[in-house]
Design a protein around this nucleic acid. Structure first.
Length: 379
DNA sequence: TATGCGTGGCG
DNA sequence: TCGCCAAGCAT
C-alpha cells in the first residue's frame, strides 16, 4: 500500500515503513563497520568526516582523518590553525575548496557559537561547505534529529528499492529522494537509520553486482522483484575529461630555490601553489631558446634548458598532458609579483601541493640527479 | 539546472 | 588501458 503525494513520489505506508526500519537497523547493528568517526557522536568529528567523505572513498579517508584529528582535535584547534597548515593536512585528498570551506565555517562557529556546532538546522545549513546532505548527516548522527541524509548511496538504494527511473544526477531527483528520506527516517535512532541506509549502499546495494542475496530488505525491493537491479540507478554519463597540453617550468636559482606560482583563486586547484604552469600555445617553452619572458608582469629572464620529461594527469574534467621544462635565471630577481615566490626545499615541505605538481617535482628531481655540471651555471 | 571541482581504485 | 565510480557543494 502506498499513497501519492504532491510531486508524485509514492510514499510507503506506516506498516511497511515500520517493517523496513526494524530490519534495516537490526542489520546495521550486526554488520556496521568500525570506523574512526563512529567512536563517539562529537559533532565536530562527524562534521570533518562528512566533508572528507564527500566524493571520496572510506579507505582513502581513514588515514587522512586520523592525522587531521590528531592535528586539529577540536573546533578551537582548527579555528586557530593557519590555512597553510590545514591545507597541508589535506594534501592529496583533492577537492581542496572543501577544506577551505571547512576552515572558514569552523572559524565562524568558534566566533559565533562559542565553538559549539549549532543544533539549529538553519544555522548548520548556512555554514560554508554544508549542503542538504551534510547538514542532515550532522543533525541526525550527532544530535538525533529526525532529518534525512540522502547521499549517493541512499539515492542508489532508493532508486532500486522503489524502482525509480529518474536520473539521479538531476537535482529534482535528489529532492524526490529527500521526500522519501523524510518519510522513512524514524524519530528513534535517526542517525543510525541514515547510516544504515548508506552502509547498505556501501556493502550490499553496491553500484555493480549488488549482493541481493544478503540484503535485509530484499523482500521489499521492487527492482529485485522485477529483476532490474543492474539497470538502476539511472545516471547520465559524465563527459570525458577534455585533453589539454600543459607546460610546467622547473626554474631554479642558487640555494636549492625553485620558482613557484600560486594558482588563481577560482577554478581548478584554486589558490594552490605549484610550478609555473601554462597551456601550450599561451607561452611556449622552447628548449634551447634563451631569455624567454616568464608570465609575470616584470618578465623574469629565464634561460631554458631541456625537457625534463612528460607525464599525464587526469582531473574530473581535464586530462593534462604535461611537459616539464628545465630553466634557470641568470640574474637574481629579488622582488617577485604577488602570487610568485622562490621556495627552498624546507619551505616546499611546508606547503601543500596538489598531486599533479607532486608528480612534476618528482619527475624534475629524478632527472636533476642525472644532470651533472649544471649547478655551476646557477646563480 | 548543469557544470566545475581531485584523486585513487577497480573490473 | 580505460571508463566508471566514491558519504556533495557552490555557482
Amino acid at each position: 500500500m502506498s499513497r501519492k503525494i504532491a510531486d508524485s513520489v509514492q510514499v510507503p505506508d506506516q506498516e511497511w515503513t515500520a517493517f523496513v526500519r526494524e530490519n534495516l537497523l537490526r542489520w546495521y547493528d550486526k554488520n556496521k563497520r568500525e570506523l574512526p568517526w563512529r567512536k563517539n557522536k562529537d559533532p565536530y568529528r562527524i562534521w570533518v568526516s562528512e566533508i572528507m567523505l564527500q566524493q571520496t572513498r572510506v579507505d582513502t579517508v581513514i588515514p587522512y582523518y586520523e592525522r587531521f584529528m590528531e592535528s586539529f582535535p577540536d573546533i578551537t584547534a582548527l579555528a586557530k590553525a593557519k590555512e597553510e597548515q590545514v591545507l597541508k593536512a589535506w594534501e592529496g585528498l583533492g577537492y581542496y575548496s572543501r577544506v577551505r570551506n571547512l576552515h572558514q565555517a569552523v572559524k565562524e562557529v568558534a566566533a559565533t557559537y562559542e565553538a559549539k556546532v549549532p543544533t539549529d538546522p538553519k544555522a548548520v545549513a548556512s555554514l560554508r561547505g554544508i549542503g542538504d546532505y551534510t547538514a542532515g548527516a550532522i543533525l541526525s548522527i550527532a544530535f538525533d534529529q529526525p532529518v534525512p541524509a540522502v547521499d549517493g548511496n541512499v539515492m542508489r538504494v532508493f532508486s532500486r528499492w522503489f524502482a525509480l527511473w529518474d536520473d539521479i544526477v538531476k537535482l529534482s531527483t535528489r529532492r524526490k529522494m529527500g521526500v522519501l528520506g523524510t518519510h522513512l527516517v524514524p524519530s528513534d535512532r535517526p542517525g543510525d537509520f541514515n547510516q544504515a541506509l548508506m552502509e547498505l549502499g556501501a556493502l550490499i546495494c553496491t553500484p555493480v553486482n549488488p549482493a541481493c542475496g544478503k540484503c535485509p530488505v530484499q523482500a521489499t525491493c521492487q527492482a529485485y522483484e522485477q529483476g532490474v537491479q543492474a539497470e538502476l540507478p539511472v545516471k547520465k554519463k559524465a563527459k570525458p575529461p577534455r585533453p589539454m597540453r600543459i607546460n610546467m617550468a622547473w626554474i631554479r636559482k642558487g640555494g636549492g630555490q625553485v620558482l613557484l606560482q600560486c594558482r588563481p583563486n577560482e577554478g581548478l586547484l584554486a589558490g594552490m601553489w605549484g610550478l609555473p604552469t601554462m597551456e601550450a600555445g599561451q607561452g611556449e617553452l622552447v628548449p634551447g631558446d634563451s631569455l624567454v619572458p616568464l608570465l609575470t608582469e616584470q618578465e623574469v629572464p629565464v634561460e631554458w634548458g631541456q625537457v625534463l620529461g612528460e607525464f599525464e594527469h587526469v582531473f574530473s574534467h581535464q586530462r593534462w598532458q604535461v611537459t616539464v621544462v628545465d630553466g634557470f635565471v641568470r640574474e637574481d630577481i629579488s622582488v617577485l609579483p604577488d602570487g610568485w615566490r622562490w621556495a627552498n626545499e624546507t619551505e616546499r615541505r611546508r606547503l601543500a601541493f596538489p598531486n599533479v605538481y607532486r608528480k612534476a617535482f618528482a619527475l624534475a628531481e629524478k632527472r636533476k640527479k642525472g644532470l651533472s655540471g649544471f649547478q655551476g651555471r646557477l646563480l
